[in-house]
Design a protein around this nucleic acid. Sequence first.
DNA 1: CTTAGTGAGTTTGATTTCGCAACCGAGTAT
DNA 2: ATACTCGGTTGCGAAATCAAACTCACTAAG
Lengths: 152, 152
Amino acid sequence: MREDLPGRPCSVAAALNVVGEKWALLAIREIAFGNKRFDVIARNTGAPRDRLAARLRALEAAGVIARTQYSDHPPRHEYELTQAGRELRMVLQALRTWGDKWAVDSPPTVFGHSCGHDLDPAFVCRHCGDEVTSDDISLAVVAPGWTREGPA
Amino acid sequence: MREDLPGRPCSVAAALNVVGEKWALLAIREIAFGNKRFDVIARNTGAPRDRLAARLRALEAAGVIARTQYSDHPPRHEYELTQAGRELRMVLQALRTWGDKWAVDSPPTVFGHSCGHDLDPAFVCRHCGDEVTSDDISLAVVAPGWTREGPA
DNA sequence: CTTAGTGAGTTTGATTTCGCAACCGAGTAT
DNA sequence: ATACTCGGTTGCGAAATCAAACTCACTAAG
C-alpha cells in the first residue's frame, strides 16, 4: 500500500488509490447492503463479471473486504466488509448526499438512522459543535511535499 | 446527465458518473485549494496533461467547475468550483478522513475549521443530534427498481 | 533581435484497462 | 438426462490511460 503516488502526498489520493477504480465503490455499496454473493453484486452494480472479480480481489488485498468460504464442494465464497470497509460507508453517504442533490432528478433511496428518523446527516465540528459547510474548511498544516501552489 | 446507468438507480452511481473517472476528484481538490491554473493542477495531481484537459472539460460540462477566460491573447482560462463543485468538498473530506485512517501512515494534512480549531468532523443526525457512525445507517425507502436482493 | 521561458493545451504511439460473450467445473433441481 | 445456479476464467476487440514531444501565442532577458 506504499506505492508512490504521483502528485502531492494526500490522503484523498491514497484513498482513491484503494477505491478509485471503476466499480469498486459500487461493489462496496452492495456488500454494505448485505449482498454477499458474486452474482447479486454483479447484477446490482452492472459491472462486467471479469472486472468485478478483479475488483473484489483488489479490495480484499487492500483489506476493505473479506472473502470467506461458505461451501467446500463446490468452493463458494461470500464477501463482507472489514472495519475499513464499513467506514467507507461514510464516503458512500457523502457521495449519495451529493448525488441526490446534483446528479439525479429525485433521490431513489432514503436511508434511516437508528434513532428512527430518516437520515439527514450533517457534518459537525467536534470542537465548536457547529455544522461544517464546505465553505469553512481551510488547509491548516501540511506535511513536507505540500505548498499552496505546489512543489516545483 | 440522464444517461442510463447500469445496475440499480442510485445516487452514488450517478455521482460517480460525474466524478468517478480518474483524476476528477484530485483536480477538484486542487481547484478547491484555489489553484486555478492548468499547469499547477497538472503538477499537483500528477495527472497526464491530456487526461487532465479531458477531465476539466467533462467537469465543466457537468456543471461542477466553471472555466473563465482571464486573457484574450493568448486565450488563457482559469478554473473555479461552482456551487455543485464546492459541495463536493464534503466528499473529499469523507475520503480524506478515511484515507487518513486507513490508507496512509500519518495524515499529510490537517484542516482547520472556521471556529479556529483543527477540523475534526463528525456526521450527525439532524433529527436526534447524535453522531452517525457507519453502523447505524439502514436503507429505509426505495424507489422502483430497488429491492434488497436486486432486480431479476 | 534573437533566444529562452511560460501557459495551456494537442498529438503521437505504446500500454492498460474495460467490456462482452462464451466457456467451465461442481454441484442442485426437474 | 437435461437444465440451471454459482462463481468465476478466458479470449479478444474497443476504449481509456500514459509519458513524452510538439504547438501556438505570447513575455522576459540579453
